[in-house]
């Protein structure tokens, strides 16, 4: 069962208002559900879609709950679990693959201490967060930065021509950096 946040309080009024405003903004337009979920997720501190948000959304729009869930779990952009403080996203595009992105991924899994049971999806379609929620490691099909391969995105900044050493240093820097309040 996917209800890690049941014990948390229901939505605060500001959050309800925020969602209501979004519903008005996108009402009836193509791609409404995608846009709603995208904006809601982006507004969340841990960049995910908590259950109570989905519950609330379902109660406000004329879309069956099962359909909302189907959409929220179909697209790889949506997270149903809280994301780490830092997100490291390794490109698994063809150009990056031919230039060694898999060994970057393996190395990083080792460095961040992931075990197989922490991972969701198959070996290459990955989204995993460290237990201390400091790091989320993800893969992306392709950033479209193929000329800079291999490419890694760290907290939305693209690192190009990455090797194991530079990536390791980058992560160490983040790890040593101060925790967010």
């Amino acid at each position: 069962m996917n209800s890690p946040t049941l014990s948390e309080p229901r939505l605060r009024p500001q959050e309800q208002e925020f969602i209501d405003r979004l519903i008005v903004k996108y009402h009836g337009s193509p791609g409404m559900l995608l846009s709603l979920l995208e904006e809601i997720q982006e507004s969340q501190p841990n960049k995910y879609l908590p259950m109570e948000v989905l519950e609330y959304l379902a109660s406000r729009i004329d879309v069956p709950r099962a359909q909302i869930y189907s959409v929220a779990t179909f697209y790889s952009l949506f997270n149903l679990k809280p994301q780490g403080e830092h997100t490291v996203c390794i490109c698994r595009g063809t150009a990056c693959h031919t230039r060694g992105s898999r060994s970057l991924l393996e190395r990083l899994k080792l460095q961040l201490g992931f075990k197989e049971e922490d991972e969701e999806g198959s070996a290459d379609k990955l989204s995993a967060t460290t237990p201390d929620r400091r790091f989320t490691l993800r893969t992306v099909a392709c950033f479209g930065q193929c000329a800079l391969a291999p490419v890694v995105e760290v907290d939305h900044a693209i690192l190009s021509h990455v090797n194991e050493r530079t990536l390791e240093r980058e992560i160490e820097t983040l790890r040593k950096g101060s925790r967010k309040a």
Binding site: M1, N2, S3, M51, L54, E55, A58, P64, R65, A66, Q67, I68, Y69, S70, T73, F74, G121
Partner: peptide, 18 residues
């Protein structure tokens, strides 16, 4: 009540919000 969640080989029948 029902829909399909996730995709590919992980797809599963799902009841409401799981």
């Amino acid at each position: 009540v029902w829909d399909i969640m996730s995709r590919g080989v992980n797809a599963r029948l799902v009841c409401e919000l799981e």
